[in-house]
Design a protein around this nucleic acid. Structure first.
Length: 152
DNA sequence: GCCAACGTTGGC
DNA sequence: GCCAACGTTGGC
């Protein structure tokens, strides 16, 4: 069992949008960064727990919890010529971009703001608080995961 | 909207 | 394989 933080812009796709997907869940498409792709392809496993983080918005921070339901999916948006994530270099028989499927678990009673996360020594090693780290998703430890949820 | 700090691209 | 130019991310 691994723990992750996935970033999303709530104007595009928020924790509420994920909730509205109910049990069907949602495909986490559009990741176009190789390091993040490698996590999605090689490390994220079914039943892993994911903190959903809202970026580029009014309340930047951790907004909810999701669970991984399917792994090893070729990112369908890479094959869609109408998608802004379309990538002609990604072939169906040899996809460049991979992703997974998530299901909503919980919306936190409040958003745990980035500003708060930065204040705790316990979280100083987490990628999410580090300056200049532009990963759109990445691993956190169980200790960090539990610590963040205890801040609610 | 600004801009620092990245990642990616492409010429050489 | 270097590295300058460019594009993107993301907090503020």
């Amino acid at each position: 069992m691994n723990y992750w933080i996935f970033k999303t812009e709530p104007d595009e796709f928020s924790i509420d949008d994920l909730k509205n997907c109910k049990n069907k869940g949602a495909i986490w498409d559009g990741v176009r960064n190789y390091q993040a792709r490698n996590f999605l392809r090689d490390k994220v496993a079914a039943n892993d727990s994911v903190l959903i983080y809202h970026s580029s918005c009014k309340n930047v921070g951790v907004a909810g919890i999701a669970k991984v339901t399917e792994v090893g999916l070729a990112d369908p948006s890479a094959f869609d010529t109408k998608s802004k994530y379309y990538d002609p270099k990604s072939k169906k028989d040899n996809p460049t971009w991979f992703t997974i499927k998530l299901k909503w678990v919980k919306t936190l009673d409040r958003v745990i703001l980035l500003k708060e996360l930065k204040a705790y020594e316990e979280l100083s090693e987490a990628f999410i608080v580090k300056k200049g780290v532009r990963l759109s998703l990445g691993p956190i430890t169980k200790e960090e995961y539990d610590f963040i949820l205890n801040l609610v």
